[in-house]
Structures are given as structure tokens and as C-alpha cells.
Nucleic acid binder design. Structure first.
Lengths: 193, 193
DNA sequence: CTCCTGTGATTGAATGACCAACCAAGTTTG
DNA sequence: CAAACTTGGTTGGTCATTCAATCACAGGAG
């Protein structure tokens, strides 16, 4: 028999919380349900996570880690990230569904809101870095990279939402169009008056 | 004393529900709170709206009406819509906040989900019509209009989300960039004005 | 080798609060 | 008067959190 790590139950609870939250939805999920899914007693959930809020915060952190798409740099990295996103849309619908829900919760829960906000800022920052690298490769003005990142990340969120809510939504087509628009906008031709 | 319209209380409840839901959040809002805000008895809420779900559905319909941005057609209509959206971001933060929350709720509530889904499809359809008009004005292939609409509406949702969650988000810059990308993408790739 | 004991892990029941929905009785209005 | 409207209390249930009690086990004492 392998050694019984003290964090074994903690991990089971975390996975169960993710499963129940994404399956049943935030407002339909009780600590009791999570404990049942994890196969432990209700009290143990509060032993490892002081409150429901802290547990959901830990789950949010877990979800964010499942959504990483950055595997390379420069133009190739940008193209790869869009491809990775298309794969994630197929393989991680639960994580996306839960993320969308926690966005809503975060609007009125200080801690969860801070978690979501930090995640969005970080992701937008990654996109901005990629945009700057692409612009540098083309030896053009790097100043629009922030605006581009705002739009690209908005598109990512919006595609996630439409895909989650509408099963008929053509996500691949949308991602391809977003990629084309983003990479053509990086050219200096898109200047505004 | 003015004449007491029978629909007066119903309207008061609807407005109160919008106010409390957007201020406190969905899972922190009870029928009791809404009745108190409206200045009526608890039972009256169930008299006019059979259930909490039906009430929220009516509020969702109300919210969607506050988010209309289409005032003209063709390229001018598209530009006007983006400008109207920028105004809405400043004037209707409550409606946007509530809409985002109901997106999350709709993922696990059949009726609210159907309401959100129909709204998204309709909005995307409006954008697609505008895109087709713009492409027609330019006498180019209208086939990419669906993909463009998917990306533009994704951008709209994503900008709403980022603006609601992050007070420091520069929404005007993002909308301008989205407009520029959308209107330049309408050109067939390779041609530049 | 056995017993003892302290500590963290785990249990399940109790607490106190809250809520959606229902209802029976009152009020207004046409 | 009858129908629509309004009231506020009741009901049956759920929930997060707390807590006292039990368990597993490691390691020191005898």
C-alpha cells in the first residue's frame, strides 16, 4: 500500500467541486453535493477549505490553468495559440462553462471578482506580448498592440460564451475569422483618421 | 390621487427586480428583497409572476431591450452601431452586468438559457445583415458575413465582460479597434483602401 | 514487543438562518 | 356584488457553517 498523502482528500474534494459546479451550476451546488461526489463527509470540506467561497476560488484557479494556449512566440506562436484555442473549445467545454459562470458570480463577489480580473489582465497581457512580437517582426509601429489585445481577448471570451450557450454556433469558423482579422489588423493598413 | 392602473404594481415589481438583481447579484436576491424594493407585499410578486424564474425571464427581456444599438443601415449604420455601443457601455453598466450574470445562469436554467440564446442569435443576425449590406456596397463576395458577425458579436460580449469586471479597461479604445478590424476585414484579403 | 498518548484527519449530527411557493383572508374597483 | 388586486403569515425545504466525538497512526516509554 502506497503512503496515504494528507492532501489526497483535499484533491478529491477539489476535483469533485469542479465536476459538480460545472455539471449543476453555481447556485444549484451545495457543499453537501460536493462532499457526496468526493465520497467524504460534509465537515471535511470545511476542514480543508474554510468556506464555500475559498473552495470556489481554488476551483477557479484550477479552471484557469486548464485554459492555457500559449506554446510559442511571434507570429507562429499567435497562429498556434488560435489553433490551441480551437482544440480547447472541443475538449474543455466544462471548464469554459464554469469560467463563464464564475465571471457572473465575480461581479458581486469581491474575491472571485479579483481572481477573474487578474486572470483576464494576465491573458490580455500575453496576447499583447504576442501582438508586439508580430509587429516587431514586421518592423511596424508597436503602439496598437494594446488595443489589438483587448479586441482579441474580447473575441476569445465572446466565442467561448456563444459556443457554451448555443450548441449550433460554429466556433471554428469564428476563431479562424478572429485570427485573420487580428493578424491583418497588425499591418499598418488599418490606421484610423 | 391619480388613477391606479392595474399594471402599475407589475411594472414597479419589474423595475425593482432589475434594480435589486443588478445591484446585489442573482444568488443574493430573494423575492422578499424585490418586494421590499418595490414597496409591495411578498405575495404580490407571485401573483404577477408565477415563479422567480418567470420574473427573471421578464427582467431579461427588459434588459435586452435596453441594449439595442441599430439605428441605420449599411456602412453608416455599422459605424453608428459601434458609436451607440460605446454610449451604452457608459450609460447602462447595470444592464450589462445583469446580462453577463444571466448568461451564467442560463447555462444551467433551460428557460433563461433559451432566452439568452435567442437574443444572441438575433443580435448576431442583425450584425450579419449589416455586414452583408456593407459588402454589397463594396460589390464584394457576401459569404464571409456570417463569420464576421460571429467575431463582431463575440467582441461585443467580450468588451462588455472586460468593462464590467475591470474598471480600468479602456472600452472606447477596444470598440474603436473592433470597428476598424471589422470594417477592414470586410474587404477581400489583399485589397487595401 | 506492547502499551500509551498526542495529533491530524474524518465523521455526521445540530444550529440558525434563509428562501420560494402557497394560501386564506382582506381591500379596492368597475 | 364580483372580479381583480393586495396582504402577510405559514410551510416545507435547503443551505453554510460549527462542533463534539471518533479514527488512524506515529513514535516514545516501559
Amino acid at each position: 500500500m502506497g503512503p496515504k498523502l494528507p492532501s489526497d482528500s483535499r484533491e478529491k474534494i477539489l476535483q469533485a467541486a469542479f465536476a459538480v459546479l460545472s455539471r449543476e451550476g453555481y447556485e444549484n451546488t451545495s457543499i453537501h453535493d460536493i462532499a457526496e461526489e468526493a465520497g467524504v463527509a460534509q465537515g471535511l470540506v470545511h476542514y480543508y477549505f474554510k468556506s464555500k467561497q475559498k473552495l470556489v476560488l481554488a476551483v477557479l484557479f484550477e479552471v484557469c490553468q486548464k485554459m492555457n494556449v500559449y506554446t510559442a512566440e511571434g507570429t507562429a506562436g499567435a497562429l498556434a495559440a488560435f489553433e490551441n484555442f480551437k482544440v480547447l473549445l472541443r475538449t474543455q467545454p466544462d471548464a469554459h462553462s464554469l469560467y463563464i459562470q464564475l465571471m457572473g458570480v465575480g461581479l458581486h463577489d469581491k474575491e472571485i471578482g479579483a481572481g477573474i480580473r487578474d486572470n483576464i489582465r494576465m491573458e490580455r497581457g500575453h496576447v499583447e506580448d504576442l501582438a508586439r512580437q508580430v509587429l516587431a517582426e514586421r518592423e511596424t509601429d508597436p503602439s496598437p498592440s494594446r488595443a489589438i489585445a483587448s479586441v482579441v481577448w474580447a473575441g476569445v471570451i465572446g466565442i467561448m460564451v456563444q459556443k457554451s450557450i448555443d450548441p449550433e454556433f460554429n466556433a471554428d469558423e469564428a476563431v479562424d475569422a478572429l485570427a485573420a482579422m487580428a493578424l491583418s489588423a497588425v499591418y499598418p493598413s488599418g490606421q484610423r483618421a
